[in-house]
Structures are given as structure tokens and as C-alpha cells.
Design a protein around this nucleic acid. Structure first.
Lengths: 106, 106
DNA sequence: AGTTTATGCAACTTAAAGGTTGCACATAGG
DNA sequence: CCTATGTGCAACCTTTAAGTTGCATAAACT
């Protein structure tokens, strides 16, 4: 399972950046820095983490770099959640069946 | 949006613990430590993070503490993903509509 | 040409995360 | 009772993450 997307989502500022970009892509690091209480370099580090996870893509436009949301990797997270949920549900069913067949004694 | 569950999922060992518990709950920290290359105390720290996120529950049994999966908080993650995806999709639709009405010039 | 304004690189500080060790305490079992 | 085994607490080490500052470079604009 692809790790970097989970790491990317762990930080609240990065999640906020994703929501922001979902609504207002594309934006430059400088524009984003103006909206947040941290410096452009700080924003840039977060954007790099997001880019490594494939959650944003960059597009050069003259001298500026515009960042846009690319939400595909979120599917990996969704798939992981579905997998573990399914595993759990199946387990519960087996447990239930077991209990119903074997009238417990403790 | 509930932060601790995102943090909990960021670590690969913690994700592995969840999968493990999905299949083999409940287990004690000592049992788990035997299956992983780290110490019981290390496992315990991860279990505490998972517990803070509401992803595992503990049940005392004599002198031992048994950890079980409680996957409900994963719904929050799922909801967050769905929300941002919906936001993005709607945005794309608006953009598409805009382009189709306004034959571009750059 | 000269001045803005945006990005790029890199060093540095601080705080937190992951993991260890050591020991104290409690309970199960001969 | 005594011993083995499981848990609890806390200090400690090391690495990484988050954020900053400073300066260099490159492209727009007048």
C-alpha cells in the first residue's frame, strides 16, 4: 500500500491546502503563503510532500509555478479502508456463526 | 475534521497493526511485540496512538490488556475523501461549462 | 537598464515521533 | 510462598518533520 499519501494527509495544514486547491486550483506557492500564517518556504515544503504523494501537480507558467489538485491517490486510501473494513466485517460474521453454533460457557 | 485518525494512519507499522487486529483481535501488546521487530514498549506507543484515534479498544482480562480493532473512525477519513472528491468534481463540471460557453482566447 | 516580484537552494532551530532500556508493580500458578 | 510472566511508568537517544531566515537567480514590467 502506498505510504506517501497517508503521510501527506496526516498534517492538518496539508489537508487544508488540498481543500483549498480543490476549490481554487491552480495557485502558486506565493499566493498560498499569503493565505496562511506561515512563510512561502513553509508552504513549499508542504507542497513538495503533497507532490511526492501525487496529490498535487505543478505546471510552469512563465516564471511562476502553479499547483493544482490531483486527487487520484486518494483512491488508494479509500481502497485500503474498504479492504480493512471488509476483513473486519467478515471476521465478525465468522465470529457470530461460531457463537450461534457453540453455545458459550464463559 | 478529526485529526488523530489521520495521524494514526500515517505510520506503516500502525496500519499493519490494524490489519493484523482486523483478522486476529483481540491481542495483547506482548503478543503483538512477538510478531514485530520492535519491543513491547514500542508496540505500546503505537497502540496508544491508535487508541487515541479511537481505532482500537482495550479490554482488561485478569492481568492482561487485550486490544481489539474498532474501525468506526475510518468513516471520518472516508467522509473527508468523499467531500474533497465531490468538491473537485463539481469544480471540474463548472469549469467545463465555462469553457463550453466561452470559446477561449489563450 | 533597472526594479520589482517570483522561485530555488541551503543552513539552521525547535519540537515531536519512533524506539530503546531499566526497573517497579501486580497477578497467575506451582 | 516464591517464581514466572505481563503490564506501567519514566528517562533517554536519535531521527525526522515543521518552520524559519538569508541569499541567489530569473523573469516581468516600466
Amino acid at each position: 500500500m502506498d505510504a506517501p499519501v497517508f503521510v501527506a494527509l496526516a498534517d492538518p495544514l496539508r489537508r487544508d491546502l488540498l481543500v483549498n486547491l480543490a476549490e481554487h486550483s491552480p495557485k502558486t506557492a506565493t499566493q498560498l503563503a499569503a493565505e496562511y500564517p506561515i512563510t512561502r518556504q513553509g508552504i513549499l515544503k508542504h507542497l513538495n510532500v503533497l507532490e511526492d504523494a501525487g496529490l498535487v501537480a505543478v505546471q510552469q507558467h512563465g516564471r511562476e509555478k502553479r499547483y493544482s489538485l490531483t486527487p487520484e491517490p486518494l483512491k488508494d486510501v479509500d481502497a485500503w479502508i474498504k479492504q480493512i473494513s471488509a476483513q473486519w466485517d467478515e471476521r465478525l460474521l465468522r465470529l457470530k456463526a461460531f457463537i450461534e453454533n457453540e453455545p458459550a460457557d464463559e
